[in-house]
Nucleic acid binder design. Structure first.
Lengths: 341, 341
DNA sequence: CTGAAAGCGCTTACAG
DNA sequence: CTGAAAGCGCTTACAG
């Protein structure tokens, strides 16, 4: 590949002039510019980024650290990030950690070595000390979906509202024995949803029945099993609020196997609004999270951090969730039902 | 951040020795090595990749070009790629093109500039001349899922078998009016599935009815509409074979809205085996594609190309598909049904 | 086994 | 507005 000397030679100028012409920041004679541009064209010259990076230390690449791309909530967020990154001339490196600290450290090491200009994490937990350390070093980082208090920039959904609005919706449909199939209490996002759920119950004067609440479920299998236990426990839920659509699918599977019809016999509310939620049978009502926007905002924030000389005060951005009403929740205002099974 | 000179100073040796110690390829006195390693530890030294890259031209990064991460078939493939890449100390950059040539060219330019060592494409079409050009230049590239004849390395699924086995399965269940909701004939993978479907029909002595075949559908909406037209056309299908699970979801939605029960009234067979296929109602029978393995193999191949000095002969690797029988296909050997609706 | 020196391809003060 | 030169941080033939 041609280098800057080749271009300079062909254009009859010095390498400095080629560099200046290309950077566009420093005035260059119009005629000179034309000669240079032509030589660039002819040789299909592309500056060597290693050489550039060696000077200015920028790679125009950011890194994304997530547990697993196969988790259906991430693709939309990824799209948000890459779209914004592209707009700034940036490119994104993707890393899966499977929630493993060692894998994560490996990636952080190798990415810093590869000099990404900044990092977005979706893997923050209470033991994420390496993230805190990066922050201390002044390295640009933004958290996404999960956060770590107010000390690090983060873009998350309003999880309290999600739990609150979801439960309130079910209450408005006349349900009183609302089960909650929740995730791990080790993550603030699930604690918040739980808190929102409790708040809604409290406001409605419904006494919380601990037997209706299951924490620590993960994928659809665990939700499937939890539902089985819930049904045989005598807790008698009239609606089930799962804190992910994937879990809601597990719930529905368990219900169907027990010949319980959704929503005639029992209602189900999901969380996330994954791509296929509207195609479920019945179409799943759910608390929609703005994953694409979360990705966008996180990337925008990271771009700001990368560009700013001084370290701006961290911002915790909380995006609103949105209730999406489909057919999986019945109750008082339920109209359909004739022959839909 | 500390550089090699700092380390050399602290260890009381020359930068050359530090470099040699770290590379491990050249013998270094044991004692010297220890001093160096300690200095490296103390200063938390990490070699600057830009400087390294400037010398050897390797970035230890590969690029992946796909239409859209949000398409449910890609996450698994991405995981396959990143897992293999990680094993080789490589990192992966992700780019979405939305099937747009300009976006793709932009990314290819910017990635080459950022000196990725190689590229995996899932976007090849007949007009992908830039891909051919890269190949001519000797730049390491591998195609995935789609291919471009035998001139470029590619890892794909056996699409002919997929169409053939799927149709044969439906025929074995006694169906004779099997509709095919296919993708664009501009892509070889859909031409192959169609060819397989035709072959199975031919073998079974079933005359192909063109009214039962719809090409050019894409997402679930188009499949949904195509199904509507199919049902009102008088073509009277007894089974519908969709060439993606997403399309199959659209098909099922259309059937349910017309009060047709799956599989009692009509059977549905999908293609891909996406994550949620088993959670559909009814669980979707489908032709499973080994996306994870496709990603793995593509990455392995790319690593080979990057490492080899000479350009090896291109290999077209075709991975087998697998029929996954669930409840959405009824017919002769169908046993369930009591109360499953 | 080790050091001094050259060079990878840029950018940017410095001088004019 | 333009050129010659220094320097970014490594690696690696060259010499010893």
């Amino acid at each position: 590949m041609a280098n800057i000397k080749d271009v300079a030679l062909r254009a009859g100028v010095s390498p400095s002039t080629v560099s200046r012409t290309l950077s566009g920041k420093i005035p260059v004679d119009k005629e000179t510019k034309e000669k240079v541009m032509q030589a660039v064209q002819e040789l299909n010259y592309q500056p060597n980024v290693f050489a550039q990076g060696l000077k200015d230390g920028k790679s125009k690449t950011i890194g994304l650290i997530i547990p697993n791309v196969r988790n259906l909530v991430f693709p939309a967020a990824i799209r948000g990030i890459t779209d914004v990154a592209k707009h700034y001339g940036y490119t994104m490196v993707l890393c899966n950690t499977d929630e493993d600290q060692e894998t994560e450290s490996f990636y952080v090491q190798s990415l810093r070595q590869r000099l990404v200009d900044g990092l977005i994490f979706s893997t923050a937990t209470e033991k994420s000390e390496h993230i805190l350390k990066l922050r201390e070093e002044g390295f640009p980082i933004v958290l996404m979906i999960r956060h770590l208090g107010g000390t690090i920039d983060a873009v998350i959904a309003d999880n309290f509202s999600g739990g609150y609005e979801g439960a309130k919706f079910l209450l408005s449909r006349g349900f009183r024995r609302i089960a909650l199939i929740n995730g791990t209490m080790g993550l603030d996002l699930y604690r918040q949803r739980y808190a929102g759920y409790k708040e809604a119950l409290l406001e409605a004067g419904v006494v919380l029945d601990d037997r209706l609440v299951v924490h620590e479920t993960g994928d659809w299998e665990t939700a499937y099993e939890a539902t089985g236990r819930l049904l045989t426990s005598g807790a008698k839920p009239d609606a089930i609020f799962a804190t992910s659509d994937t879990k809601a699918l597990g719930v529905m599977k368990a219900l169907k196997e027990r010949k319980l019809k959704v929503p005639e016999d029992i209602s189900v509310l999901g969380y996330d609004d994954i791509e296929t939620a509207s195609l479920m049978d019945p179409p799943l009502s759910t608390v929609a999270q703005p994953f694409y926007e979360i990705g966008q905002r996180a990337a925008e924030r990271l771009m700001k951090l990368i560009r700013s000389k001084r370290r701006p005060k961290p911002v915790l951005e909380k995006l609103p969730v949105r209730l999406v009403v489909r057919d999986s929740v019945g109750g008082e205002s339920y109209i359909g039902g004739e022959g839909s099974s």
